[in-house]
Design a protein around this nucleic acid. Structure first.
Lengths: 343, 343
DNA sequence: AAGGTCTCCGTAAAGGTTTAAGTTAATAAC
DNA sequence: GTTATTAACTTAAACCTTTACGGAGACCTT
């Protein structure tokens, strides 16, 4: 556990001042060629590495420190986002610090404050579902910290973000089912407070409208948590309250779709012959379900990656604003088509 | 974006020295009662928060900064570990910085170095599968950084760790199948270089041995990546190379088990009637598969949590060494028993 | 030869905090 | 009334960098 070398160590070794050493190592002006050479040589020998704390303190901003705030890290979609961010951050160049908001704006604010304490150079944030998050984002901006919103964006936010086109996602999912000849398409949607869920629902309605299919509210139920169990229960409810059996279901997430599977299989009905199912996210799960689940692709990895790239750009150039919306794309698998060609 | 208050601001406001302010806020000796009161009052008014950079620089160690290194964050098991760590770290008190090793010791070393640059007070590490990781762990210790190993431990490491009893996990999984009357139990194991996989395999053999069932190498195949596709292919291979059809499979992970399901279903065989299946990890997946998968529980969340708790203890008391091995527990579901009682 | 320019380097302050050591004034001891 | 003792401060150094500024010498210009 020997002490690490400092500028002073190099300076005394060469009998020059620390300022000279600093300039030599930072490629500044006002430095002689052979001095520079000698300094870099000694620095290498002593295995010198700058003290980031001192540098940050002096410059009044941490370099290469990126804060990430997600609702949760163990949710598959968010974990792939995190993975994408870390890929783009390039291990060893940028440092990622992370916080979980659990959709709690208070927690979110606490994390932001802690990040600010460490003088992060930027924050990637998926805001919580609550209105109070608007305030939190404003606070980040007020502190002069670069920020890019991820997945969920806010009306009050005019800065950078990366999001998915959930409206079109819902539209193409539903349209696909219509084009397969389905008439009674149920939809298990997400919580109304969640803009994403509302967008998908809007897409669902739009698809019905443009194909002249009457919207029936009895075919649409709302999930709160959007997990498997809820999907199962709500699908049971849909069966119960509709005289005409639905011939297709568009589920707001793959997890919900898994619950829908269970409900359908329990009734000895076949997927997709009796009821076609489409999920959302194209998670790992969609390949494991039997039959494999058609799902709207949501590539968290590349979303996280571009979020990080945008952030580094915005950090470099504070006045920049970059907004990106990912188009929706449907991964068609066995759960939604009769003719089973290899996907 | 106004500047944040410093000790100096408080000092000038009260006409005292910064040293006095510092002592007052840190509950040190040599401070008058009313001075202390006045200082805390002004500090509150100015919304003073210490500059962590300056504190760390002065103390030569970052406070409350914990480094986490995992092979990947988007693998379900590891993401739950991360979740557990963050729960224990208490948002807003400790800061988590994170790196992905991708099982690459070189990357691992780079991350460790970067963490050291930021003077982390401790590191939670799941070492890569390669021998070079031994060296990396030694490097952490050499630098005087507290460390606790997670999930995978090393022979050369005599410090703190948290791990699972994979030997017993493999043993009870296999024994369960034996007690269900299965005779020809196949095992798709993980890579030989992975100590965890070897332990589970050892447990498998031990169970066979103690129940006087002959070990057949043709029933055991090795997966490299341990994913669904490999599970599918290796299960096909097991079918192909054995005259006697196996009546049970113990898969090294739930993902592999999912592939096994596919292979079995493709042959129009039933689970568990024809072939019982047991997986490992008790991941979310095990509840979504049809039939639900029996799996050895591996609670990443609580493992991450205790890892973090142990780390904070070890940071407080450098001389301490805490080692914990989690017992194995089998979650029995439909995939391994004929009599289907509600689990 | 005096003045100007340029190169290369040193000095010192600054960034915010902690802390060892020194200072002052009041109190206690004799 | 002098001398310890103590409480409650202040001073200044230290942690490690960066950077504005100044200074010395070399070289060029007229």
């Amino acid at each position: 556990m020997k002490k690490r070398a400092t500028l002073k160590d190099i300076a005394t070794a060469l009998n020059v001042s620390v300022a000279t050493v600093s300039r030599a190592l930072n490629n500044k002006e006002d430095i002689g060629a052979q001095t520079k050479l000698a300094v870099t040589e000694v620095a290498r020998m002593l295995d010198y590495k700058p003290n980031v704390l001192a540098v940050s303190l002096r410059k009044n901003t941490a370099n290469k420190l990126i804060g990430v705030i997600l609702p949760s890290v163990d949710h598959y979609f968010y974990s792939t986002i995190l993975n994408g961010i870390m890929n783009a951050a390039k291990q060893g160049e940028n440092l990622i610090i992370i916080g979980e908001s659990n959709q709690d704006p208070v927690k979110e604010a606490a994390i932001i404050e802690m990040f600010a304490d460490y003088f992060v150079s930027g924050i990637i944030l998926t805001p919580s579902k609550h209105d109070a998050s608007n305030q939190n984002v404003k606070e980040i901006v007020r502190r002069g910290i670069s920020v890019v919103l991820l997945d969920r964006t806010l009306k009050t936010h005019s800065g950078s973000f990366v999001q998915y086109d959930d409206f079109n996602g819902g539209r193409i999912a539903t349209e696909h089912l219509i084009l397969q000849g389905r008439k009674h398409i149920a939809h298990i949607r997400g919580d109304a407070s969640c803009s994403i869920a509302s967008e998908r629902f809007r897409g669902y309605r739009q698809a019905l409208l443009s194909h002249n299919i009457k919207y029936r509210s009895s075919l649409v139920l709302s999930a709160q948590q959007s997990n498997e169990e809820e999907g199962y229960l709500l699908m049971n409810e849909i069966f119960a309250k509709n005289d005409v059996r639905p011939d297709a279901v568009f589920a707001v997430t793959d997890d919900v779709a898994a619950g829908v599977y269970r409900s359908i299989h329990q009734r000895k009905l076949r997927i997709p012959e009796d009821i076609a199912v489409v999920g959302y996210s194209n998670s790992k799960l969609s390949n494991f379900l039997n039959p494999k689940l058609t799902s709207v692709e949501q590539n968290g990895r590349s979303m996280g990656q571009t979020a990080c790239e945008i952030l580094t750009e915005v950090i470099e150039n504070k006045s920049k604003t970059i907004q990106k919306t990912y188009g929706a794309h449907l991964m068609i698998r066995e759960s939604s088509r009769i003719s089973l060609t290899k996907s």
